[in-house]
Write a protein that binds this DNA or RNA. Sequence first.
RNA 1: CGGGCUGUAGCGCAGUUGGUAGCGCGCUUGGUUCGGGACCAAGAGGCCGCCGGUUCGAAUCCGGCCAGCCCGACCA
Length: 570
Amino acid sequence: MKAASYFFKTYKEVPREAQTPSHILMHRAGMIQKLSSGIYSYLPLALRSLKKIETIIREELDSRGCQEVLMPAVQPGELWEESGRWNYYGPELLRFKDRKNADYCLGPTHEEVITDMVRRNLTSYKQLPLNLYQIQTKFRDEIRPRFGLMRGREFIMKDAYSFDVNEDDAKKSYKIMYDAYNAVFKRCGLEFRAVDAATGAIGGDMSHEFQVLAETGEDEILSCGSCSYSANVEKAVSGKVVEKPLKSGSKDISEVHTPGMKTVEEVASFLSLDPSMLIKTLIYLVDDKPVAVLVRGNCEANESKIQAFLGANAVAPADEETVKRVTGAEVGFAGPRGLKEGIAILVDKQIYGDTGYACGANKTDYHLTGIDPENDIKADKNGDFTFALEGDPCPHCGGTLKKFRGIEVGQVFYLGTKYSSPMKCIFIDNEGKEQTAVMGCYGIGVSRTMAAAIEQNHDDMGIIWPAAIAPFEVIVIPIQGGNDLVENTAENIYSELKKSGVDVILDDRNLRAGVKFNDADLVGYPVQIICGSRLVEQGLVEIKVRKTGEKSEVKIEEAPEVIKEMLLAL
RNA sequence: CGGGCUGUAGCGCAGUUGGUAGCGCGCUUGGUUCGGGACCAAGAGGCCGCCGGUUCGAAUCCGGCCAGCCCGACCA
């Protein structure tokens, strides 16, 4: 490819809304254009990079027995009625009607369509296992699209779905995909972690997210320094052991007047207690039913864990009215004793490590002191309902957990029969009995992976592509246009490289050297070959490695070989 | 959905007490330059977000709407 006729243009300035490195740089490098909120066009440079990511994905999946399909982006509402998600899925699902007034939606994911596709073909256990995937544009009407490709409404996703005869086999399929994803992101040249992930309303215990490590990531993960344990903070477990106190606390519960003191800090300092010696009573609506969750004053309640523990669809903090109703007091004075009948009380197990707590009295302006959780709280359940913290011991090996920020670029999920059962995706097993297929689903955000690569790999000058997913591996830059020797040398090296299969672009634009250098650094080609008259006359060209900034001079005829070797290391 | 902010040339912005629009980048043409975003000269490019109101006159004042961004809430 020659730059003079290539459809791209670089910018010094960026639109006001671009905030993050990937958004700013992809715009400045002329890779993407916003068409509407959260909706972008991919220009040739971006598409080249996307295709490289897609190729890696295809190779890794195909070699593991997956088969590619392509499903419609527009899906009939009735399929979603069948799975039960038509009403359940929020406004993220873009719904619309056709001319006959029938319901349709733009696919945010394809469980329904794939399940329908498979059930129409599936009759015998002999057809399983099956793993189908597609690479396709998805649409989710995000509340707040932002950060360019990182959280768009329209995005490119690879989604795969596995079908197995039973749970054990489904778990094998899961493992295969887990391995495939590790291979994909490794080949993309990204630094990432596979982390334990919360499963949300699906329930169950099996899900991993693939997180590209980057400061701008929206997710927080905790990763052990000594073993392979990594988990999303929503899911991460602290290895801290809670030991019960030897003697039970005093039996004297007293009521203390705490006028207007609603926060943990206010109450703790008034009572001269450490915040950890307060019991925070939080009222949640779990699938619209109020539930009280008790955590220590210095801890944060973890809604994901509550949701997982209760197997609920939705967990949200209760509104003020509900709190008043179940506690009989203003917000800020909730406590475990004297709640309205029938409210389940969940106690975070860390609370059992001490005695002599203070808590709300369920009476406006009053708190209780001298609480011994063992004896004074009628817990329905206890468990882990708080966040693990950086510095906590690892639950597996006792090492120390360290916090990272990550960008979720993939997730693997064991589904069980959540879709296959209501949608009757069944087959006849080897005993002649009807069985329901056991499913898994596996996503990779392709466009987000490209953005994440930039978030992770850039500097002040621009993008620093991992060679495997760079739009071009090499740029040849002739400077001092009009000098035939320079131009011919550049042209020769370019053709030479192209002939041997290197992805190369020739910057034959009639521009000043500085502009070409800056553009090359901005777009982030891993290797630059600079042909200037002074060196060329000595039979030399300069090679610059984008990542390190390292420059070297090599003989013109050796340049192609040197480049090829360099690329292997990038 | 709550709070804040912004809509003026492709992009970034200025525009005073209301008088019919400007700067930088980019673009076109010519010339001089040419190893880290050159310089000179001459150009092209605007429904000032939309609708209505006030006024002799509105980018500017008033009302409504629309769009975008930031913070929060939300996010199988």
